[in-house]
Amino acid sequence: MNRLIEKLPDSDKQRKWIAIATTVIISMLLTLVGIYLIGEYGIALFVLTPFFMGACPAVLYGLKREVTKREAWQMGLLTLFIFTIGLLFFAIEGLICIAMAAPLGILFAWLGSLIGFSIVKKGTKRSPLLVLIFLGFIPTTAFVEKDIKPALNSVVTSIEIKADLATVWKNVVEFPQLEAPKEFIFKTGIAYPINAKVDGVGVGAIRYCNFTTGSFVEPITVWNEPTLLKFDVLEQPAPMKEISFWDIDAPHLHDYFVSKNGQFKLTKLPNGNTLLEGTTWYYHNIKPAFYWQGWSEYIIHKIHLRVLKHIKKNAENG
């Protein structure tokens, strides 16, 4: 890598663009390997790769010459921006997923640029070696992450309905077409429920909760009328339709967000109303878990509320 750096042109402008282009190409290759070969959306992709995009241009450009902290940050941000355009252009990712990941990408690209600047500032001859070591650390992390089993999480949403248990129960088991959503999140391509049908009665019946991208197939495991309806999820559709110029079918749309079970619990309140609770148990194979769990729970709550408000309206209208 020392030879590569020595061959970089003396022109500041040319040197910057070569440093940025080299980093973008390497980062794109790392991303393709991580997604399509290793099959992992995790810390290697969302943390280490942006960090590398922040640090590498500063090292390539700034070794054996002065570079300011501002220049390092600007090069890192530009590298991340060009990389993002590449993801969109080559139909690797869509606009919504990129927007969700943007806070992580910007944060770690910034941190990477600070580290890159510090490395160049110290003028150590081992700077290229440090970059190469970190470069090898990215796919290694992806391989390690792949074997980590995800935790099962639950999301509970509740609503009070001015109707008795029996009336609410009828609207829980199946419900007619929902109105078009007004929430912004559902206008971005995120899948949302449109109606629910049930085939059969009691344990063993199959409930179909139909979303804009397909149907959740839900075998009933508990049918305690009129207080508890519990089900497994046998099949589920894609969680979203990406916004893109192309028809994107990214790997993370399949088996990376998995709904395992769900239930509706009805409780009679002292005032004669009914407390309806909807619960979803899920896991996702996307990391860092704490970050993506926030997004997942926000979207699931919105889906729950859409269904619960529809049930409430129908039940209270008789």
Rank of each mutant, 00 (worst) to 15 (best):
P150C: 05
A101I: 01
T167I: 07
G94A: 08
L132M: 13
R306C: 01
D147I: 09
L37V: 15
R15L: 08
L275F: 11
P9L: 05
L60F: 12
I98C: 05
N2K: 14
F134G: 01
S113D: 09
E242L: 07
K16I: 04
E218H: 01
V201I: 12
P239Q: 07
P103K: 01
P128K: 03
K64I: 00
W223I: 01
R3N: 15
E235K: 12
F231I: 02
P128V: 00
K64N: 12
L253W: 02
N224A: 13
A21R: 04
V172E: 13
P57W: 03
K69Q: 13
A196C: 15
V203P: 03
V173F: 09
F117R: 00
L114M: 15
E145R: 00
F257K: 02
F134N: 00
L275P: 08
L275S: 14
K64L: 02
I148D: 13
P9K: 08
G204Q: 05
E218L: 04
V47Y: 07
L95E: 07
K125P: 08
I38Y: 06
D10V: 05
S244F: 04
R306T: 04
A21Y: 05
Q177V: 13
L111H: 06
T213R: 02
L30S: 09
S158N: 12
I26Q: 05
F211S: 01
V172I: 10
P193V: 03
A101P: 04
F216R: 00
Y256N: 14
L37P: 10
A238G: 07
N210C: 14
I311T: 03
T279P: 01
I300S: 06
V156D: 14
P226V: 01
L276W: 07
V120W: 07
W110D: 05
E6Y: 09
G318W: 08
G39E: 08
F46D: 03
P139I: 08
L104N: 02
N314H: 06
L114F: 13
V59N: 06
E179D: 14
L269E: 15
K64P: 02
I35H: 09
N271M: 06
P57I: 01
L45F: 10
G42S: 06
T79W: 02
Q74G: 04
V59L: 10
I185Y: 04
A91I: 02
T31A: 15
L87C: 11
V131W: 04
L80N: 11
L114Y: 14
I243L: 15
R126G: 10
F46C: 02
I5Y: 11
W110M: 09
T124P: 04
I26D: 09
K197M: 09
L152H: 06
W281F: 14
S11N: 13
K268R: 13
L152K: 12
E66G: 07
I138A: 01
K146L: 10
I206Y: 13
L253N: 09
E179F: 02
G272M: 03
F186D: 05
K260L: 15
Y208C: 05
Y41L: 08
C209Y: 02
L88T: 08
C209H: 04
F245I: 08
F90T: 11
L48S: 06
